[in-house]
Design a protein around this nucleic acid. Structure first.
Lengths: 338, 338
DNA sequence: AGGTGTAGAGTAAACGTTTACTCAGATAAG
DNA sequence: CTTATCTGAGTAAACGTTTACTCTACACCT
C-alpha cells in the first residue's frame, strides 16, 4: 500500500477536468457543477489525496501556522500555557510550532529565523532571555508577548499575570497569619514579573505598617546542574547561618518555596507553626509537597485565551482597539504551609 | 525599518547576477568567482535576506522538519523526552513540530494529516491512543515509536524503557523491605508498558515465592476532570473499606502513588512504617512529596538520543541494521517511602 | 591555427497550489 | 432575432527556490 504522493494534477487527469477545477472543488470556491464535484471528490477519496500545504503556503503567503517561543517547556507554568494555546489554535485551524529556547539567546535567534522562513502567520513569545527581540521586532509578523515584553517597543501586546497583586496577596496572607518578619526569595530579579512581585510585597508591608528591610530580600542564583530548589535551600541556610531571623517566607516561585521549606525542616523547625511559607505559580508540586504549599495561582487558561484571541485579531487585521498591556488577575490558594 | 520581505530575485538584481548564481553562493555549491561571492553576500547582509524555507521545501521535497506526537505535554515524562528530542534535533539542523494529541484519536489523525502536508522528513510518536496508526502506517515517512507501537506493523522501530525490569525492581524493593502483601495500582491496563510492569511485579513475587493474588490488582479509571492522584486515592479507599489488607503498594506511576500515600495517611497509617509505597517515572513530584517517593527512573535522555539517532539514520537511509525493538534500562531511586 | 578543457554564469523548468482572465454555450430579455 | 447575463470550466501566471543544461570566453596543448 505504499502509494506515492498524489498531486492535484493527477486528480485532475483522473477526473477528466483541469487542475483549476479540482482546486475550486477542494476549497469550495468558484463555480462548478454538482456532477463535477462528486466525481472529483470520489477520485480524491480513492487516491487518498492530501493537499500539500507547503505549496499552498507558498502560493497563499500564509501557512496557518503559529510559532511559539518558550524558555523551558518542562516548567509547569509554561507547559500549561503552551498546551492551552496549542489546543485553542488547533480548534481554529492553526498548527503550532513549539520552540524550546532554553533561555538561550542564540537558540532564540535561530528559531526566530527558522520560523520566519516557514512563513508563520503569527508569533507568541513567552518570557525568555534578558533582552528579547533584537531580530523579531522589525518584522511585521503579528506578535504577542506573554509575561515579558521586548526591550524597546511600545507596539507589541503584552499579556501577563498581575504579579503585583500576587506579591501583595502572598504577603498579606503571611501577615494575616501573624508573620512580622517576612523573607522574600528572588531568583531572576531582572524580570519585570519579579520586580512587580517584590513591589506587591513591599506595598503589603506598608499597608500593615511593617517596615521593609533590605536584609529580608534573599537573591538566589542557580548554578548549572543545580535545581532552583537546591539553590534556594542553600541560600537560605547560608543566610540563617549568618544569624538571620524570620517568621515567614514569600518565595517568588514554588520551586524556591520548596527549597525554603526543606531548609527550615532541616533545621528542626516546623512549617507552618514556626515559619510560614508562600510560593507562586500553583505548580502541581505545591499540592503534593509536604506540607502542602500555599501559593499564588496564575490563570493559565485565561492567559492562553487572551493570547490567542489577540493574535488572531492581529492576523485578521480586525479589532484595532486592543489594549497593549493586559493584566490577568491571580488568586491565592491557601494550603497547609500557612 | 519595516522592510518588505526580500527574495532571491531581488538579491540577484541588486548584485547584478542571476538568481541561479545567488542560490549557488548561498548554498556554496556549484561554481562562482570569489568576487561574485563577496558581492552577493554583501547584498544579502544589507537587505537582511532570509531564505524562504517554504519554497525551498517545495522544491527540495524536504522540509528539515520532524513532527512529534505526544499525548500530553504537561506530563513530566513526556515533557522531558520531548524537550530532549527537540534539543538534539535542533543541533542537527532540524526543527520540531510538537503536537499535543490529548490522547484524542481525531486530533491525532488531524495532526498526522497536517504534518504530512508539511512534508515532514520524519515522525516520532509517543504513546497516545489505544489503536494508533491507522493513517500513519501506510505512509513512507520515517517513523519511530516511543513507548507504544502501532497495532499491526512489524516494520516500525519501537524504543521503550524496560518496563518489565521496572516492575520487577519496584516489587523487589518492597519485598526486600519486608512487604508480603503488595497491592499494584494500574491505570491504563491496555498499554503494553502497563502489562510489562505487571509482569515484572508477578515475576518478582514468584522469585521470592510469594503467591500472586488477583485481589491485589487495583484498576483505577480516571474520570473527566479528576486527577490520577484523586482517582487512585478514591479507588484505594474504596477497596480498603471493603476490608482489603496490604503492607505495600506498587503504583504504575508517581501520580497514582501519591494518591495511594494520601489514602494511607488519611486512614491514620504511616508511610513507610505501616505501608511502603513505590511509584514509577521519577516525576519531579516524587522528590518533593511527603514522604519522598521511591520510584523507578526512566532514562529520558537515552530514550531521546536513541529515537533521534534512529530517525536520522532512517532519513539518511544509512544503517539498515537497526534493531526493531530497543529497550532502555531503568533504575530504582530509593527514597523515604520504602 | 585549431582543438580541448574549464571556470563562471545564465536560462528555464520544476515543485504543487491558487486565482485572475478568458471563453463557449446556454438561457433570458428586449 | 439580437443582445445581455450567467454558468461551468480551462489557461497560464505566480509564489521563491534549486539545478540540469547551455553558453561564452579564456587558457592550454599539439
Amino acid at each position: 500500500m505504499n502509494q506515492r504522493k498524489v498531486s492535484i494534477k493527477e486528480i485532475a487527469e483522473l477526473s477528466g477536468v483541469s487542475v483549476a477545477t479540482v482546486s475550486r472543488v477542494i476549497n469550495n470556491n468558484g463555480r462548478f457543477s454538482e456532477e463535477t464535484r462528486k466525481k472529483v471528490l470520489q477520485v480524491i477519496k480513492d487516491t487518498h489525496y492530501e493537499t500539500n500545504n507547503i505549496a499552498k503556503s507558498l502560493r497563499m503567503k500564509k501557512s496557518n501556522t503559529i510559532g511559539i517561543l518558550v524558555p523551558d517547556i518542562s516548567n509547569s507554568f509554561f507547559a500549561n500555557v503552551v498546551q492551552e494555546i496549542e489546543s485553542i489554535l488547533f480548534k481554529k485551524g492553526y498548527s503550532t510550532i513549539i520552540c524550546n529556547t532554553d533561555r538561550n539567546e542564540e537558540k532564540e535567534e535561530a528559531y526566530l529565523r527558522m520560523l520566519e522562513g516557514k512563513m508563520i502567520d503569527g508569533l507568541i513569545v513567552i518570557s525568555g532571555v534578558k533582552e528579547f527581540g533584537s531580530t523579531a521586532i522589525n518584522k511585521k509578523t503579528p506578535l504577542i508577548c506573554i509575561d515579558r515584553k521586548p526591550k524597546d517597543t511600545k507596539s507589541t501586546i503584552l499579556i501577563e499575570s498581575d504579579h503585583y497583586q500576587g506579591g501583595f496577596l502572598a504577603t498579606e496572607e503571611l501577615i494575616s497569619k501573624g508573620c512580622h518578619n517576612i523573607a522574600i526569595i528572588i531568583h531572576r530579579d531582572f524580570l519585570s514579573s519579579s520586580k512587580e512581585r517584590l513591589l506587591g510585597y513591599q506595598n503589603a508591608l506598608k499597608k500593615y505598617q511593617i517596615p521593609f528591610k533590605e536584609e529580608n530580600v534573599i537573591h538566589v542564583t542557580v548554578e548549572e546542574k543545580m535545581s532552583r530548589t537546591e539553590a534556594a535551600k542553600a541560600a537560605l541556610l547560608q543566610k540563617i547561618s549568618e544569624g538571620y531571623q524570620f517568621d515567614g517566607v514569600f518565595a517568588l516561585n514554588d520551586r524556591l518555596a520548596i527549597g525554603a521549606i526543606h531548609a527550615i525542616l532541616d533545621l528542626g523547625k516546623k512549617v507552618p507553626e514556626d515559619i510560614k511559607v508562600v510560593g507562586f505559580d500553583n505548580d502541581p508540586i505545591s499540592k503534593y509537597c509536604y506540607p502542602c504549599l500555599t501559593t499564588i495561582r496564575q490563570d493559565n487558561m485565561l492567559i492562553a485565551e487572551q493570547a490567542c484571541e489577540n493574535l488572531l485579531a492581529l492576523i485578521d487585521g480586525t479589532r484595532k482597539d486592543m489594549k497593549k498591556h493586559q493584566v490577568i488577575p491571580v488568586t491565592l490558594v491557601s494550603r497547609a504551609s500557612t
